[in-house]
Design a protein around this nucleic acid. Structure first.
Lengths: 206, 206
DNA sequence: GCCCACTCATGACCTTTGATAAAAAAAGTC
DNA sequence: GACTTTTTTTATCAAAGGTCATGAGTGGGC
């Protein structure tokens, strides 16, 4: 392997960084806009296992995580298969549903009690249209899309080239916070195996 | 499933469409540029099993396929695992290597004798910088990146939610040209299984 | 046309993972 | 702290897929 896992510096995460301090100094061009933009964000607190977007619905909100953990999962014949985990400072929406106004194939749900900030699609589009006019921000956003894409590609490569045990060890090594924080049966489905099988793998490792 | 497979209308494919007729009428703004741009493309013919980019090298060219078929594969402990197939009118590079100047984790190789057109990264960047100034083209390119990303996401979902037999049937249904044209053992590794296992699956289907 | 490399199918055998059930452990709830 | 619910482990058996070996097509190159 040529490189380590990089955090998911996605399109939306990039945006939310803009909204959440980090980019303010990098992009003083938008200085006057911050106050306006920040009114677009709506703070909510939700308990664990709260569904934020149901499979089949059309995603109209993006969520930024201040505190807690979310997961996106896919319904496969009644079973729930975790597709992605999201943690503090990450932003999540069902990207294809959000962008193309089609039904989402994932359900987005809280794993822990969370503090979230959501923004509506229409407000986000408004900000985007302004931000895209600024070359540095545009470049940064495009970079963000590519990074997100490369991360997903790596996850796909991992499925193609590694067996479940290798994938588990890779996860422990590269993203240990997931293993420490998330119930094991969610991790099992994320790795493409059953909870029973993951338990056996863990047993064989230690 | 909510939608059928869409062709990979990727970032680079979008670009090459621009260079190859289809976008000329859509973007008359670049009318004067077509002649110049077309000199950036270099036509080559290669026999089957020609390596166009070796794992570990840094990708400096993008290839457009006029005729033939390429595949990208990953070396896994001496075995070659097909990651993607590419056909006529598609454009291919090791995207992350090309964009970030890092060693490629895939090898790109011809499956059949091919007629290709390649463009250097520096020339492509030059075109990109000009094209990105035009809002319609910019929007189209960004759409292309997202579409590419969504396609890879679907492939990942397929690995997470489906077993090899289901993946094979899906491939036959949605991309039959691959099954008809490409040697079976390449398809087997693309599906994440051995040639023996694919042969058994085919037998059980018919 | 003949040869050789490539491709595919099949059988025997082995390993891994899944399905199911049940028990143990851990985490919440009141 | 006792009770409930959720999560994890263990055991057993079945099924899927991998490995290895063999033989039968197939097709291109000479």
């Amino acid at each position: 392997m040529y490189r380590k896992h990089k955090p998911d510096f996605s399109f939306f995460r990039t945006l939310t960084f803009m909204l959440f301090e980090q980019f303010k100094s990098a992009f003083p061009q938008l200085k006057d806009k911050w106050d306006e933009y920040s009114t677009y964000l709506h703070r909510i607190e939700v308990p664990a296992k709260t569904v934020l977007l149901r499979e089949g619905q059309i995603s109209k909100k993006a969520f930024h995580i201040e505190k807690g953990c979310l997961r996106a999962w896919i319904n496969k014949g009644g079973k729930d298969i975790t597709f992605q985990f999201f943690f503090e400072k990450e932003t999540i929406s069902s990207a294809e549903s959000f962008r193309k106004n089609i039904p989402s194939f994932v359900t987005i749900e809280s794993v822990e009690p969370c503090i979230l900030h959501w923004i509506s699609k229409s407000d986000l589009v408004k900000i985007m249209n302004e931000a895209m006019e600024i070359p540095e921000i545009r470049a940064s956003l495009i970079d963000g899309i590519f990074e997100r894409h490369f991360n997903y590609t790596r996850q796909l490569v991992s499925f193609i080239t590694q067996n479940p045990k290798e994938r588990y060890l890779k996860l422990v090594k590269e993203r240990p916070h997931i293993v420490l924080r998330v119930p094991q049966h969610y991790i099992a489905s994320y790795l493409g195996i059953t909870p029973v099988s993951l338990s056996r793998i863990r047993n064989s490792v230690s």
